[in-house]
Design a protein around this nucleic acid. Sequence first.
DNA 1: GTGAAAGCGCTAACAG
DNA 2: CTGTTAGCGCTTTCAC
Lengths: 321, 321
Amino acid sequence: MATIYSIAEHCGVSPSTVSRAFSRPDLVRAEVRAKILATAQELGYQPNRNARGLARGTTGAIGLTVPDITNPFFPPLVRAVENLAWHQSQSVLLVDTGEDLDRERQALLRLREQVDGIVMVSPRAASNVLRDALAGTRGVLINRASRLLPHVIVDDAPAIDVALGRLAELGHERVAYLGGPADSWMNSRRRSLLHATAPEHGLEIHDTGSYPATPEGGRAAVAALLDSRATAAVAFDDVMASGVLVELAARGVSVPSELSVLGCDDVILSSMLNPALSSIASAPAKLAAAALAALVDTELAVGLTAIPSSFVERISTGPRP
Amino acid sequence: MATIYSIAEHCGVSPSTVSRAFSRPDLVRAEVRAKILATAQELGYQPNRNARGLARGTTGAIGLTVPDITNPFFPPLVRAVENLAWHQSQSVLLVDTGEDLDRERQALLRLREQVDGIVMVSPRAASNVLRDALAGTRGVLINRASRLLPHVIVDDAPAIDVALGRLAELGHERVAYLGGPADSWMNSRRRSLLHATAPEHGLEIHDTGSYPATPEGGRAAVAALLDSRATAAVAFDDVMASGVLVELAARGVSVPSELSVLGCDDVILSSMLNPALSSIASAPAKLAAAALAALVDTELAVGLTAIPSSFVERISTGPRP
DNA sequence: GTGAAAGCGCTAACAG
DNA sequence: CTGTTAGCGCTTTCAC
């Protein structure tokens, strides 16, 4: 394997010069540098990251923890993080915590030794636990406020405002909120935004309770939804909403003519459903970019970056029956 | 930060003893070991992986490249790989190549320096390019045969046999195959399996051509499908099939009463669709396990591990109209 | 500009 | 069983 030594020998210079040619090119005479880079190329040299990391105290990698990559909300986020990291020559260490708080903590302990910073999606863990597990390693929370850690969240306010406005325009008066997991930060957030925004549009919000953020959760919520006499429903996320659509179809309730349904997150899935789901869209690429920025920007010691969401109207929403 | 030196000092032993206490516990007297482990715990010691990697020539990480993690086929696979790796104290470096062959090659060059082995999902790249980029680093291909690299593929034969048998039983005679990307290995494989298996069930396969493996690809395939006068259609994958369902609904063709539709891969999505999609299921967890095993098992120098698939019948398939 | 030398934290012979 | 001694490949003063 090519090392700076083999290159040095090849070029008749010292290893330090080769090292400089890569890390501080300006400190090396142009022709020497050119020669070094050329033979590096030729020998297929790739710096050994362990060695570099050991010497520099840095790793060239960032950690990314998600609760369940199988949830369609995450892949676009992971993809965006990976992409951005790639372009800054960083690698991404991914860990799927399986919604297991203890495993999540373990993962942070393990990751913090091998990365320069960690992006965490953790809707449930107590943030002091996270802070302690990080032990000084830079960490950024996604979609979760915290007084202890920098965080980046999608701000659903604008989209919720638009969505409710649109529902009002369509003649709806009573809107049900099909809640997600009670301990999820985004769930509380969405619920309170709905309640806060509804009056401005002359709408009434009816809470149907908390359900798992799964298709089954959505199906289970339908009974309460039908009882509520609401003419439109907002589900905690699109995955739940998919279950709602399935269950409504099974019960012969047609969407949107008898009932309007909207989801949140606008995952890829939403446009594949039948009827295509109207949704409150987060912007995963922006979330990722903000998170990565916050990982570096120490100004933002414990700050918040908010990414505005938008409302995507498809065909699961229509006029009040 | 705690190191083996601080622990050694703390315990009045030499650094090497501390090192052994972790890597070769049997070589250290029990009480000494206990003391070391205790103070390690107390000091919050975590071995520095760069140092360890440098000294051992090993990294404790494996690479995983996927073409597009946003495709629902991949998250369960990624999850399974990550999970298994976790339990063997390995980390996973993920890279999403964005279906870009050149970027994929770059990624391998970069990864090979920082991992002990690479699991690649690469339906298109020439396998000699992959082999060269690996430059000796152990690499395993998923869902793609190769004479140059060890590989693990799902063997669709059993499930296709069952599925076609079932279609025959339901009275179908003419089945359309809605092909995926022409250069995808799995696409050719599925097509030939269908053609090979159909006669045994008295079925005729009609190829409708190649389409992108996207919902739009599926929608686009519908025209040819309807022209084909087939009464059942197998799509290259579930994502395409979702588009087929959408387009059929738009055209007022009802599934399964007028046309049966099946997908491949059985991604999570499939059960959320309306009607729920019958699908030829790969077993991502088994794929992952086999791939990881193949990464270690040098016996399997350039071998093949086949994972049998199964047929999941939902409600998009029914009797011939 | 460039080289020599020390060291990042850990492992792995090699002696005892 | 345990300590001593070299490195692993790269970065980084400090001289020249």
